[in-house]
Amino acid sequence: MAGGQVEIGQAGGLSDDGETLGTDAFKILSAIEEVWCEDGVLLLMDLGSAVMSAELALDMLPEQRRQKCLLSNAPLVEGAIVAALHASLGEPLQAVNAVAEAALSVPKLPGAG
C-alpha cells in the first residue's frame, strides 16, 4: 500500500470451484498470501461464516504476518472501494480501515438515514 498500486484478492465460495455458497479459510489464506504486502492486509468480509473463516485463516498465518493483517468491520462493497482508494494514497493500514469502517454510517441516498 505504499501509494499507487493496490493489490486486491478475493476468496468467495466454499468448494474448489467456488460454486457452493460459503467461505473457505484456506481460500482466504491463499488470497492473503497472494496480495501480501509488508504494509499489511485489510480483510473485508460479508455476512455469517465469512468472519469465522477469516479468523481461521489468520490463525494459520505465521505470527509475523498475522500481526500485519486487520479484520475490518467495514461493509464489503463500499468498504472495498473506500479502502482501495485511501490505500492508493499511501495511508497506513489503520487509517485505511478507519475510513472504510466509516462507510457503515453513510447513507447512499441524499437525505436518507
Binding site: 463500499e78 472501494i81 485511501h86 475510513v99 466509516a102 462507510a103 453513510v106 447513507p107 441524499p110
Partner: peptide
C-alpha cells in the same frame, strides 16, 4: 475522505 465526498452527491 472519499466516502464523505461522495455524500455531497
Amino acid at each position: 475522505s472519499i466516502i464523505q465526498l461522495m455524500q455531497l452527491q
